[in-house]
Amino acid sequence: MAHREHKYPVTVTWTGNQGTGTSGYRAYSRDHVIESAGKPTIPGSSDPAFLGDRTRWNPEDLLVGATSACHKLWYLHLCAEVGIAVLAYVDDAEGTMVEGEKGRFTQIVLRPRVTVRAGDDVELAGRLHHEAHEQCFIANSLNFPVRCEASIQTE
């Protein structure tokens, strides 16, 4: 298989200078915007535990969201290929991060609730989550476990 390279240009602009820059730990906001040409701007900050704005996306949220979205996109693709019609998909994903000498994620758990068309192969629909995980670009790039606890129902 030919290897193709893809690039994803993103600009992150810090908007949190409150007049004195980073003159002190509490002297600045963690707010920033994440932009990429032709796409809506994402308002970002840090986790509230690190003096961030809880109404804005933080990097940890985005990592969990990217992992969940990548898995979902592969899953929908694989279902379409085998003739399983996914009618609804909701994932209540959760990441766990621990602080220590170096803060790091220890796991992400995906909990997709999938509804498929009546008469479709529910067992196969369940197994395709494993293949979606194997194909997911984001999960393949992480150095911690990503688990999937899926449930499948019919319409």
Results as ranks from 00 to 15, higher is better:
residue 97 M to S: 07
residue 53 D to M: 07
residue 11 T to Y: 00
residue 69 A to E: 00
residue 105 F to M: 12
residue 45 S to E: 07
residue 18 Q to S: 08
residue 138 I to M: 01
residue 1 M to Y: 04
residue 30 R to W: 02
residue 142 L to Q: 08
residue 57 W to D: 00
residue 134 E to N: 08
residue 41 T to V: 12
residue 102 K to G: 03
residue 16 G to V: 02
residue 73 L to G: 04
residue 104 R to F: 07
residue 100 G to A: 14
residue 96 T to Q: 15
residue 49 A to E: 11
residue 26 R to S: 12
residue 61 D to E: 15
residue 139 A to H: 06
residue 94 E to W: 06
residue 98 V to E: 11
residue 119 G to F: 15
residue 126 G to V: 01
residue 115 T to M: 06
residue 14 W to C: 04
residue 137 F to V: 11
residue 39 K to G: 01
residue 34 I to T: 11
residue 107 Q to C: 05
residue 11 T to L: 12
residue 121 D to W: 05
residue 129 H to G: 01
residue 12 V to H: 03
residue 17 N to M: 03
residue 8 Y to P: 01
residue 39 K to Q: 13
residue 91 D to E: 12
residue 122 V to A: 11
residue 39 K to W: 04
residue 110 L to T: 04
residue 85 A to N: 15
residue 56 R to P: 08
residue 123 E to F: 06
residue 101 E to P: 03
residue 128 L to R: 09
residue 26 R to Y: 12
residue 118 A to I: 11
residue 93 A to L: 10
residue 33 V to A: 07
residue 12 V to F: 10
residue 19 G to E: 01
residue 78 L to S: 00
residue 74 W to Y: 11
residue 17 N to V: 05
residue 82 V to H: 04
residue 116 V to F: 10
residue 7 K to C: 08
residue 9 P to H: 10
residue 16 G to P: 02
residue 125 A to C: 12
residue 132 A to S: 15
residue 51 L to K: 14
residue 52 G to S: 05
residue 116 V to R: 13
residue 118 A to G: 06
residue 36 S to V: 07
residue 29 S to D: 08
residue 7 K to Y: 12
residue 113 R to A: 15
residue 138 I to P: 07
residue 96 T to F: 10
residue 32 H to L: 07
residue 11 T to N: 00
residue 136 C to K: 10
residue 140 N to K: 14
residue 131 E to D: 13
residue 150 A to C: 02
residue 70 C to E: 06
residue 27 A to D: 14
residue 40 P to D: 11
residue 86 V to K: 05
residue 77 H to M: 10
residue 106 T to V: 04
residue 116 V to A: 13
residue 67 T to I: 10
residue 22 T to Y: 15
residue 115 T to D: 01
residue 23 S to V: 05
residue 134 E to C: 04
